[in-house]
Amino acid sequence: MLDAALQRRLVFITGKGGVGRTAVALSLALAAVRAGKRTLVVEVNPLGRLGEYLGDRTLAPEPTEITPELAAATIAPTVILEDFLAGMLRIRALARRLLESNTFRVVTAAAPGLEDFLTLVRIAEWEEERIGFRRKRHRFDLVIVDAPATGHSVPLLSTPDTLLKMLPFGPLTSTARDLAMLLGDPKRAAVAIVTRAEEMAVNETLELATALMRIGVTLLPTIVNAVDPFRFTRPEGRRVAAEPPDLPPEWAPYLGVARFTLARQRAAERQIRRLTQALPDRPICLPSVEAGKLTLETLEPLADALAHPRASTSRRAS
């Protein structure tokens, strides 16, 4: 998974709400930094928690340096709209005033895709940005986007195509064409879906994977987040499940919890097997981390698992 991501310059992380997209995006950024990549992680959600995970920082619409190799930014729709309007108006105060009006919200609602389009333009600018003597090197080797949840990520990623169909000629056409080429270029951009080993999350993942393949983006292996690292081996599972259990009789008080955990483990394995069978690549499992406050340190095990999936929680279904 990590190698596949590191070969690209732009990786979108999407998935069902609540599966841990932000934690996975940040873990992938950590793993990329360790592999020597200068990485930018971008959150497309004004209410997101990326800044909180990075030590309660307030993130800006411009990259903030977290470490010399890691930067983070947040994209809020109102800010990019304001920039867009300011670009047209040349007077920021007027742009801000316009944005505050309820009526203007109705007007922008009537321009579907405008915010998404501007978001992608901003991300593409960071992907292309060059610095140094004669602008020889990219400012970032890898841009990781903590993209919106399932329902919104397909419209977001298909905005350039939608726009090109709607407006084959016009001032934005060449920008839209460049964006469509970037998103559709398997060497530069790819999308990873984050999910959990639960039936509903897997159903949604399979539908999302189909929709993403249809719009022509490259899929990275799916990431199954929060997989319990505890597991019974197959022989152990058989001994616990046997009736009567194949255990010393005095161990009986431990049996309730053991059987419950085994049943949960098997249910999770069934869901991981569904993903393995339906998707081209084997999913990558990330261990659950202790509940509580997420920080760069608590995400280390996830970065490890992304870099060395077999050593940590790769599992065969029993």
């Binding site: 316009l98 007007v107 009537a110 321009a111 405008l114 389009f117 407006l167 016009g170």
Partner: peptide, 25 residues
């Protein structure tokens, strides 16, 4: 300024959005 913005938005959406919005509201 406002008419510049509305012209810009019209270019983006490709139709006479302002009139439609006015009619709608």
């Amino acid at each position: 300024a406002l008419s510049a913005v509305l012209r810009g938005l019209e270019r983006f959406t490709g139709f006479e959005m302002l009139r439609d919005v006015a009619e709608f509201v």
